[in-house]
């Protein structure tokens, strides 16, 4: 029962925000580009369940569309990280000790020396701020995360006897990586993927907050928080909705990751009890 508690709770929590993002493509309560100064900075009412901001825009609609931005940025960034990191890690493990392995390892170390914010700062200084640059910055930072994880776990799989058996059957390292190593890493990658996804949402929020992410008028949770900051003593509710949206989404994804790990890895589940 407690095995599935994390999974169910996390799935529901993150599911709500993913649904909100999807629904926002079809419908939102109010048009967020229409300004309505008369209705500005309203506390929650029946018409505006989360209130309105300093331009009179409906906060609920903003949070829904903001979910879209956050999730899209995080999804693509983690996709970049996985798409490049996993093959690199597999290649490094299959050629352990080679120059390729050494180069990939060094490259990983180097990227780890640049926190994603610094990468974003450099990219922004070079190409100007935008959501795309935020994606690239977070994506680059995700590559070594997946490369290291993949390499480490693949190395221990390469020592297993079923890989020896496959080699005795004449399969080359590319084929073994795809046929035997990758499927056995899938669970691990899914779990790490949800964790990186939640970290990417946090990173996107931070970048947007300092103005290096999505640019206005695109709503994003981080920007909404930055806008609310100057008015925090007048209208604290403005800071609450986007902040809680971030917390719940990230919490949901982390619980989901924990729940998946519990199910995929019975060894860890036993360790917990």
């Amino acid at each position: 029962m407690s095995t599935y508690r994390n999974l169910v709770f996390g799935g529901l929590l993150s599911g709500v925000f993913i649904c909100a993002a999807l629904i926002s493509f079809l419908w939102v309560p109010y048009d967020i580009e229409a300004l309505n100064i008369a209705e500005r900075m309203r506390t929650p009412t029946a018409a505006h369940p989360l209130g309105t901001d300093h331009f009179g825009r409906d906060i609920l609609s903003m949070v829904m569309i903001g979910a879209r931005t956050s999730i899209a940025v995080a999804l693509v960034a983690v996709g970049i990280g996985m798409g490049l990191g996993v093959p690199l890690g597999l290649a490094a493990a299959a050629n352990k000790g080679s120059i390729l392995d050494e180069l990939i390892g060094r490259g990983n170390d180097l990227v780890f020396a640049f926190p994603s914010l610094l990468i974003a700062i450099l990219i922004t200084a070079t190409f100007g701020p935008s959501a795309v640059n935020a994606i690239i910055a977070i994506g680059i930072f995700n590559i070594p995360v997946f490369a290291r994880l993949t390499r480490g776990s693949a190395l221990s799989l390469w020592k297993r006897e079923f890989i020896m058996a496959a080699r005795v059957s004449g399969k080359n390292s590319l084929r073994i990586s795809v046929e035997h190593i990758l499927p056995n890493l899938a669970n691990l990658l899914i779990v790490q993927g949800t964790i990186q996804f939640s970290l990417a949402i946090l990173a996107e929020a931070a970048l947007s907050y300092v103005g290096l992410g999505a640019q206005p008028p695109t709503p994003s949770w981080g920007r909404m928080l930055a806008d609310s900051q100057t008015m925090i003593s007048l209208a604290p509710h403005l800071a609450l909705a986007p902040g809680l949206a971030i917390v719940f989404t990230v919490l949901g994804l982390n619980l989901l990751g924990d729940g998946l790990r519990d199910i995929f890895d019975p060894r860890l589940r036993r360790g917990r009890s």
Binding site: R160, E161, F162, M164, A165, A166, V168, S169, G170, H180, P183, N184
Partner: peptide, 21 residues
């Protein structure tokens, strides 16, 4: 492959010798 197919092996660990998937 024609040479390789003339030789096979059985390993020690009955648990690690097979891809569990």
């Amino acid at each position: 492959p024609e040479i390789r197919s003339k030789m096979q092996a059985v390993f020690q660990d009955p648990y690690g010798s097979f891809n569990p998937r």
